[in-house]
Design a protein around this nucleic acid. Structure first.
Length: 352
DNA sequence: AACAGCCGCAACCGCAGAAGG
DNA sequence: TCCTTCTGCGGTTGCGGCTGT
């Protein structure tokens, strides 16, 4: 094994600590590792409890000394990672929602593999989780398309095919939830207002209208039909004024395209620029109309849209089949990715 | 039922920058 | 200013579960 020596750490065998032994280099940390029989591999429940208890009493930070004082035979780095990626109370687990997928795609198109930076905009998600998501889902599909994940072609595919469809699905899910809510509201049994985020129909309508705007070809050059079939109005470099004004797909990075320009409490608007050019003509704005709060929590970022935590959980349940998994499965019967898409993609690639 | 291959994710690594003495 | 230590980041690995044969 070129890196590390984690292998053979099955849960049953992990009780016996692996003893680190010689390596080529001998810095202080490694020398210390050799003196102490530091454990590696999966964490046990006992270790987790010890770490949580210690942090609860003493706080986090100073990870090396923390590891020692907590009686953990782990490196400080290992403790930090375990805490940040797994044990922290606000870590969100489970499926990546549609909104999160959309955000990941958008932010990655801006910042590249800046996982930590991207994670800052997905509350509760860790950089590790996002990185894994990207590598296992997105990169896999790039591989299927036989293009590099960082290639312009692939980025364009995301921008012009996947992201519009994500928005469309978000829309559809929101509409479904709204209908469900309306039904519940009309029933004689009143649901507690706090249990649902779609009580505010105006807010929901606001989101829907924003999403509709996104999907209008005249504004955004998508022209995706309600069933995600490509339509003649679908933007191509030939008929897209945006594209014509820049490169073939309009992928230039605007000097003011940094999302932080939008994701601030003061601007109170979450904007996702389709073309990295946040002008009204070629961007879509998910208008948050925040009264208070920031994108730093779901209530602030999506909550006023009707995308609070409960909604995310609902979304997860509604989409247990994992939209991306479907996409990557290559099942062309799925309306995310069909023959017409492939045709469109081929047309685009041939035009580059 | 058994096996092989694939996939997702937790955990590791090296490196770089920050902080502190 | 230099050195050491700590922290955080992005890349990589391999275990365990799942799926197909």
């Amino acid at each position: 094994m070129a890196k590390g020596s984690r292998g053979c750490n099955s849960p049953s065998s992990q009780v016996s600590a692996e003893i680190l032994n010689e390596t080529g280099s001998h810095d202080h940390e490694e020398a210390e590792d050799q003196m102490m029989d530091l454990r590696r591999g999966p964490w046990t429940v006992e270790e987790d409890l010890a770490l949580m208890n210690y942090i609860a009493n003493h706080g986090e930070g100073r990870w090396n000394s923390l590891a020692r004082c907590a009686g953990l035979k782990r490196t400080g780095k290992s403790c930090r990672l375990r805490w940040l990626n797994y044990l922290r109370p606000d870590v969100r687990r489970g499926n990546i929602s549609l909104e999160e997928q959309l955000l990941i795609l958008e932010l990655h198109s801006r910042w590249g593999n800046r996982w930590s930076k991207i994670a800052q905009h997905l509350p509760g998600r860790t950089d590790n989780e996002i990185k894994n998501y990207w590598r296992t889902r997105v990169q896999k599909h790039a591989k299927q398309l036989k293009c590099d994940v960082n290639s312009k072609q692939f980025k364009d595919t995301m921008r012009y095919l996947w992201m519009p469809r994500l928005v469309e699905r978000i829309q559809a899910a929101a509409a479904t939830s709204t209908a469900t809510n309306a039904t519940a509201a009309n029933s004689s049994i009143a649901a507690p207002a706090t249990t649902h985020h779609f009580n505010n129909n105006n807010i929901n309508n606001n989101f829907q209208s924003s999403a509709q705007m996104l999907l209008q070809p005249s504004h955004h050059h998508f022209g995706v039909s309600s069933h995600s079939q490509l339509t003649p109005s679908y933007s191509t470099p030939e008929n897209s004024s945006t594209a014509a004004s820049s490169d073939s797909f309009g992928t230039q990075v605007s000097p003011v395209s940094d999302l932080t320009d939008y994701y601030t409490p003061t601007t109170a608007a979450a904007a996702i620029s389709v073309n990295n050019n946040p002008t009204p003509d070629n961007s879509y704005f998910v208008q948050a109309n925040h009264q208070v709060g920031t994108y730093d929590n779901y209530s602030g970022y999506f909550g006023n849209q009707g995308f609070g935590l409960e909604h995310f959980q609902n979304m997860d349940e509604q989409n247990n089949n994992d939209q991306w998994g479907t996409v990557y499965s290559g099942d062309i019967s799925d309306n995310w990715w069909n023959v017409e898409d492939m045709w469109f993609l081929q047309q685009q690639l041939s035009n580059i």
